[in-house]
């Protein structure tokens, strides 16, 4: 009993952390690798959730619809991201703070559009039957829903890092991040790289949206509540550091659920925010840093 009280939030928090990680993963790509602060990232997450809902309108069997919805949400949110990059962000690479504000505006527009297209109270996304129930690991009952989020986050992280490491496109992204001018002169089209990076980052938000739709409500406001925590996670992890993002997301998730266990849900959020801010105070560069020579 005594131990349970300490373990239960840990399990729950790991799942929360996984969801946060999914939301932050795309950001760590666009913010970390490209330096673009996309405040509409939360709305891309929302788009992913609505995509899951729409897929369910076509494929009514929820057992099947969610596996289909994941790639669909990735592509749909990714395309929205691509559109944003092509129409707006590509003109603003030298003005990061202004990019932040422009994407705030884009986020507002997307939210309002969702509010008008879909019922204002939100839409229900059916949970597949195979997510009900629990799995017994080490004597604790893990809700399958939580395990699924953790699994999904793990798969996404693995896929992303493999993609960055082993594919030629991934290598080009890293080369561009390292030294844009050099990459350009060695024949890499940095424009294509930028677009693909942005597509992938936004697509990951879509995947996060599907996961979020299975846990909370799907409505026009859902993205807004993820954006700030996701940014804090990326910042705390260290810019462009996948490893750091993972640890930070997990830590924040677990902290949130312990705080919620001891106090209330909303106070937990406040405490978690303060925790991250204090942490960034101690380590402004985040958990991990890369040192580069920037002044040639």
């Amino acid at each position: 009993m005594h131990v349970d009280a300490l373990i239960a939030p840990l399990l729950n928090g790991s799942a929360q952390g996984a969801l946060l990680l999914l939301a932050a993963l795309g950001l760590s790509l666009t913010f970390g690798q490209m330096g673009v602060i996309n405040m509409a990232h939360g709305e891309f997450l929302m788009i992913g959730a609505f995509a899951a809902y729409l897929v369910q309108q076509v494929i009514t069997a929820s057992d099947l619809s969610i596996p289909v919805a994941l790639p669909v949400a990735f592509v749909v949110a990714g395309l929205f991201g691509l559109l944003l990059e092509v129409t707006i962000i590509q003109w603003m690479y030298r003005r990061p703070l202004d990019t932040l504000l422009v994407t705030v505006g884009v986020g507002l527009i997307l939210q309002q559009a969702a509010l008008q297209i879909f019922p204002s109270q939100g839409v229900p996304v059916e949970k597949p039957g195979w997510l009900d129930g629990q799995l017994n690991i080490l004597g604790y009952e893990w809700p399958l829903r939580q395990l699924f989020t953790i699994l999904l986050a793990t798969v996404c992280v693995a896929a992303l890092s493999a993609w960055l490491k082993y594919t030629s496109f991934g290598r080009r992204i890293r080369a561009t991040v390292h030294n844009r001018d050099l990459a350009e002169t060695s024949g890499i089209s940095t424009r294509t790289v930028d677009r693909l990076t942005f597509f992938t980052g936004s697509g990951l938000a879509g995947v996060a949206g599907v996961a979020a739709s299975l846990i909370g409500g799907t409505n026009s406001q859902m993205g807004a509540q993820y954006i700030i925590p996701a940014f804090l996670v990326v910042a705390a992890g260290g810019i462009g550091q996948l490893k750091g993002t993972i640890i930070a997301a997990w830590a924040v998730g677990v902290a949130l659920s312990y705080f919620a266990y001891w106090t209330t849900g909303s106070l937990a959020q406040v405490l978690a925010f303060i925790l991250v801010i204090v942490f960034l105070q101690l380590r402004p560069q985040g958990l991990f840093t890369v040192r580069t020579r920037s002044l040639a």
């Binding site: 909303s266 991250v276 402004p284």
Partner: peptide, 20 residues
């Protein structure tokens, strides 16, 4: 701490206070 970090941190405070 400056730039986007500063912006996000101040916004986080506003969110936290509103929740509180």
């Amino acid at each position: 701490v400056k730039g986007a970090y500063f912006a996000i941190l101040t916004q986080a405070l506003a969110v936290a206070l509103a929740i509180l």
